[in-house]
Amino acid sequence: MTNHFELFGLAPSFALDAGALDRAFRELQAQVHPDRFAQAGDAERRASMQWSTRANEAYRLLRDPVERARYLLELHGVDTGFDTDTAMPGDFLARQIELREALEEAKHKRDVAALEAMKRGLAASSRALQAELASRIDRAQDYAGATGAVRQLQFLKRLAEEVDAAGDFD
């Protein structure tokens, strides 16, 4: 069984060329998608659904920075510990609590400008963490040392989703 990077013919790295991933995904789906086998026998249709499902899953996972980092760590035998390890640096947690309070306030006041500012802030923090991950994973190959940054990135992703959802006032 090939891993998700191999499936798309890509070198396993955190800093991934999004365009190359898109192209590889489309080319693979063009070969295996069930629409190509609507006239084929049952066996081929089943195989096509399995391959196409797998391509979709691998694409979804590699496109998402948190999932991609987690998967790379897993490939190197490192558990990110999302379920078991909830310890976070104190200053990061304090900042998260501040942000959540700010989110509640913006929601309460229906303050679109404040939500937009939060979104920009989160995107910037997320970019910084991704740069750190690229350096730790791809260059230093310090997989165990990357787990903290992956968990922080996951926190930011959750929060960004909540900020997004808060924009719907009706």
Binding site: L7, G9, E27, Q31, A40, G41, A43, W51
Partner: peptide, 27 residues
């Protein structure tokens, strides 16, 4: 249908390989 089951799976694998081979140079 039964007799062509493993043939179908092999063809699919070949298709995937071809898709990958077509890309390896570009990568």
């Amino acid at each position: 249908n039964r007799a062509t089951g493993s043939f179908a799976a092999r063809r699919m694998d070949e298709g995937v390989k071809r898709a990958l081979a077509g890309r390896s140079i570009a990568n």
